[in-house]
Design a protein around this nucleic acid. Structure first.
Lengths: 238, 238
DNA sequence: ACAACCTAACTGGTCTGACCACTTGACCAC
DNA sequence: GTGGTCAAGTGGTCAGACCAGTTAGGTTGT
């Protein structure tokens, strides 16, 4: 049994499919901002689904900020750079199955800037209260066999820090950024492996309640892999 | 005509109403994470709308990360702290018409930490290219009669900086944070008025391409109002 | 020619009722 | 216990209809 490596089956509904197709066309720029979408009835016909399903997908696009729906008029594409929320990052990072390098760079930069702040806040606000959960996650992290499993524990580690920093804004940011990152996790796990050894000093600083030490420890953890990946991106861009 | 102060009529659809009711119940904690929602048919009956409308609202809740829908099983409430994206901030900041002070504090802190970074990046990446648009917005900002109009120009000012920083992540964060802030804009405008005088030095540093000066200028702009508001929040909390 | 009006043909918004696919839990046989 | 079976309830999808708002083009009056 232990070697079977099962995972939950993906159960994509028709609505998911429609949403992904439309969202993909928008973020890949195949329809420009201001353009009108086909009418709901036409879309239903073209996609071979019923109109309620098209509408459900359009509702999702609308609250994501990718389209604007007006009764009587046609549904138009919005400029996602101006109106979309952070969760759209996931679509932008992997627009057509391949990584968008500019988006990836932007994500790495933000991580490097916000991560240390989160660690600092967690140290001053949660401090010793994080001792037990952090050591628990750290031991699992060290014990993890392959880099992918390590990465999952790394995310859980940051999850604790983000909770500890007591900021709902950083919490929600983390959720959106994590959701964008997870599809890449397996591919990036080997590179990220270097962060493992720096986690203990960070945890120690946080538990000690030393905000400045936590900030710099977090920077020390994030900076090396950040720079490696940024250089790799520069190289790929030519 | 000039004194009529018209605004676009709000045209709330039934679906919007259902969404707001359900989202409000969730973020106000009136239903706990893990609880099951009523079935779609029951909700339709209770709310007096048709099932397709209930479904559209549920789709929106689902991609917002507030509920989880599973075919065959019941729709359950998720822990928004763990799964919701940044746009939910808008609902959390004004959950029942009155401000949530903890969320507001968190938002102010994040603004103070990220704003200077955005200014710094804009200085090093856009620099002189921002001269014309920034001076234009600044003149409008100064010329604005009342504090509310000033705030709208202030947002436009930051809009330019966020564009100039060349980071899609900060751009999307800004969109979500701005959307949460806008309903409060009128109430906070008098307090924010103090930021007006600090905008010119910030613009000058950015246009000069001086990243460190831009960072500190942005901090000088944001810090005073941030501290005033944080103290006001502390006072209100007792 | 021009302006105002009006109508027809779109658009999205909502409803109804039906059927399918899936999950759950209870019951039953082994 | 273990596994099979089944019924009830859930979400997933569909079809077709009608309401409500927008838009464009034609009509009318001047």
């Amino acid at each position: 049994m232990s070697g079977m490596d099962l995972r939950t089956v993906s159960r994509r509904s028709v609505c998911d499919e429609v949403y992904d197709q439309l969202a993909g066309n928008i973020v890949r720029g195949e329809v420009a901002a201001g353009d009108s979408l086909l009418s709901e009835r036409r879309l239903a016909e073209v996609l071979g689904v019923s109109r309620p399903i098209v509408r459900e997908a359009l509702q999702r696009l609308a609250i994501a900020g990718l389209v604007e729906v007006r009764q009587g008029g046609s549904t138009t594409v919005r400029d996602y750079r101006r109106h979309a929320g952070l969760p759209v990052l996931a679509q932008l990072l992997l627009p057509a199955g391949s990584l968008d390098l500019g988006v990836a760079r932007s994500l790495l930069e933000a991580r490097l800037h916000i991560g240390p702040e989160v660690a600092s806040l967690a140290a001053s606000r949660a401090g010793a209260a994080l001792e037990r959960p952090l050591t628990e996650v750290l031991s699992q992290w060290d014990g993890a066999a392959d880099p992918v499993r390590q990465q999952w524990h790394a995310l859980e580690f940051w999850d604790l820090l983000v909770d500890g920093c007591g900021s709902i804004v950083y919490r929600l940011m983390y959720n959106s950024m994590r959701a964008a990152y997870e599809p890449l996790l397996a591919a990036l796990a080997p590179t990220m492996q270097g962060e493992t050894v720096s986690a203990r000093p960070l945890a120690a600083a946080v538990v000690a309640g030393n905000a400045t030490a936590a900030r710099s420890a977090a920077h020390d953890l994030l900076a090396p892999t950040t720079h490696v990946l940024l250089e790799a991106i520069s190289a790929l861009e030519g």
